[in-house]
Amino acid sequence: MMSELETNDPLVIAGQTFKSRLLVGTGKYKDMAETGAAIEASGAEIVTMAVRRTNLGQNPDEPNLLDVVSPDRYTLLPNTAGCYTADDAVRTCRLARELLDGHDLVKLEVLGDQKTLYPNIIETVKAAETLVKDGFKVMVYTNDDPIVAKQLEEIGCVAVMPLGSLIGSGLGIQNPHNIRLIMEEANVPILVDAGIGTPSEAAMAMEMGCAGVLVNSAIAGAQNPVLMAKAMQKAVQAGREAHLAVRMPRKAYASASSPLDGLISK
């Protein structure tokens, strides 16, 4: 029988509830068919996308992302990937809002350099302030600094998403202690964004108590993305349930699982 904890444990972001705590990206796939299949297999409800200049005069019948990842079925989360200034990020969010008919949930990321794609916190804070004032619901990509995370929450971001490690690196959660410090102080959902390379790392984030994880490269970069999407879904669910179940205490010495009474030899 399912317990109350399992059946009634939604992820709540800006007042909206979601069953899945796995958020997925749509970048780096071979083609639109693979994108659609992997997103579906992941069970994700929140799906990120990017905003780019339309190719002029080329392939007018090129398939559109929104045809395979329909806004009617998924909660789209437009990102500001590729933006290096607050101004560009704000412009991108406004274009996304127009593109998606007034949809105001966005993933803000303002990057520092191309080698690390590390967030530029000063520009991120500026953009967050402008976007919140402009009525956007901002889920913000940031580093794993607990002070910065708290400030982004105080600005009014609806979720804070620290990196586990560099975007697209698959290096997992490099500083779990900082992610814990961020969660201790947070009143908004904390999601690990960037760095997850395997389902075990996604499960670890969830066991630690993260509200969710955002995964793109680990699925798109797998040899079989659809199978990996399914594995991620299970890992996120397992990690969440383990967090709710509360793990056994760690002990320094052995503790026998079988009774010591009634042994045939002494």
């Binding site: 749509t26 990017a50 905003v51 339309t54 559109n64 992302l65 274009l95 593109l99 793109n216």
Partner: peptide
């Protein structure tokens, strides 16, 4: 004029 559309991204 800038004309944009949605594409895959993370």
């Amino acid at each position: 004029v800038e004309i944009v559309h949605a594409i895959g991204g993370g």
